[in-house]
């Protein structure tokens, strides 16, 4: 298998003007948990980044605390992405804040042209107090609907600006127009950062079991698989630890047997499973270690990076909204022989 640089994950944050994209970006910056983010914004506008996070500004690049940077891409996103490739400190994750009328799916498509990037997720925000009105607006209605349809994950934001009755109507409407994407709800863009960044929180436990949220090592890698009931499962509520508006729970399932990674990934990404995020490694049928990454409806299976520590144990971390983790079904899917 050829050695190649791991592709840089890219998250596209879309949504119409005023839906809270900038606020969300600032929230994510505060909860990046050491992850080096590069944030690409259409313009610096009304200062896209909270002042206390800024260390220095040089033209169209702002240096932020924790090794993060923010660049304005103006009218040429691909040029900005190419420039990032020659940055002195390599970012670990890229966030693109799309302009208010951009179709995030089109931005995602253009990423397929750049070999060093991998589209991780298109997250589209909707202003809970305005989205239904915007979708009916004469000029931008169809643009708003196309943005929602492009989403892998929807963030229904600004819950505080709407009434409970209106929110119920909006939820129902959104489920109807958004199709396959799960919806998370938020106030001031405060969502669990682990949803958008695999690198934070639970994923780290996979490559470094000593910090695992569950006792490591009980599941064995065996040729013919092991009883899933003996697999190591941990579950916890991610209790508001970064002030997310909505509660999530996660499960870590060690998978010591061979599976068909593509079939598993596709089944887990089915929205019937109600999963928000999945990441981890599995042994493919030909015994290659594969990386599975899922956000909402978007899934990918790629070769595992070659530099993984010896201690890496095959397994997946699942994140779902609190109360929606279907433990038994997930285990059944992962256990199925192909």
């Amino acid at each position: 298998m050829s050695q190649k640089t791991p592709e840089l994950p890219v998250t596209i944050i879309g949504g119409y003007l005023g839906c809270g994209k900038t606020t969300l970006v600032n929230h994510l910056l505060r909860h990046a948990n050491g992850l080096r983010l590069a944030i690409l914004v259409n313009d610096f506008g009304d200062l896209p980044i909270d002042a206390d996070l800024i260390e220095a500004q040089d033209g169209d690049v702002i240096s932020l605390s924790g090794g993060c940077i923010c660049c304005s891409y103006g009218d040429d996103l691909s040029l900005s992405l190419r420039k990032l490739q020659s940055a002195s400190v390599k970012p670990e994750h890229i966030l693109i804040e799309a302009s208010g009328v951009a179709l995030p799916g089109a931005i995602g498509n253009s990423l397929s042209l750049l070999q060093d990037y991998r589209l991780d997720c298109i997250a589209v925000l909707a202003d809970a107090s305005a989205i239904m009105h915007q979708a009916n607006e004469k000029y931008i209605g169809d643009t708003v609907l196309r943005q929602l349809a492009d989403a892998d994950l929807l963030v229904l934001n600004k819950l505080d600006l709407t009434t409970q009755k209106k929110l119920t109507t909006t939820r129902g409407w959104l489920a109807g127009v958004s199709g396959h994407a799960p919806v998370v709800e938020a106030v001031h863009g405060k969502i669990e950062a682990g949803i958008l960044f695999h690198q934070v929180a639970e994923y780290r436990t996979l490559v470094n079991p000593s910090t695992s949220i569950c006792p490591p090592g009980r599941a064995e890698l065996s040729e013919d698989g092991c009883d899933v009931d003996k697999a190591d499962i941990a579950q916890k509520i991610l209790r508001d630890h970064n002030h997310a508006s909505e509660l999530f729970e996660s499960m870590h399932l060690l998978i010591g047997w061979k599976v068909d990674a593509h079939i598993i990934a596709a089944e887990l990404a089915d929205q019937k499973m109600r999963l928000i995020r999945v990441k981890g490694f599995v042994r493919n049928l030909d015994n290659e270690l594969m990386l599975i990454q899922i956000v909402g409806a978007r899934w990918s299976v790629t070769d595992a990076p070659s530099n993984l520590p010896e201690s890496t144990q095959p397994g997946l971390v699942f994140i779902a909204k609190a109360g929606e983790l279907k433990n038994e079904q997930l285990r059944r899917i992962c256990k199925r022989r192909h």
Partner: peptide, 29 residues
């Protein structure tokens, strides 16, 4: 290479781009 999925990059029968590039985001690079 194969694996490009973009409306602005038509592919030939071999799965490789035909060399036609539509729109600034594919033309500039």
């Amino acid at each position: 290479r194969t694996g490009i999925t973009h409306d602005g990059v038509p592919l030939g029968d071999d799965g490789l781009p035909t060399g036609e590039l539509k729109g600034p985001d594919v033309m500039y690079p």
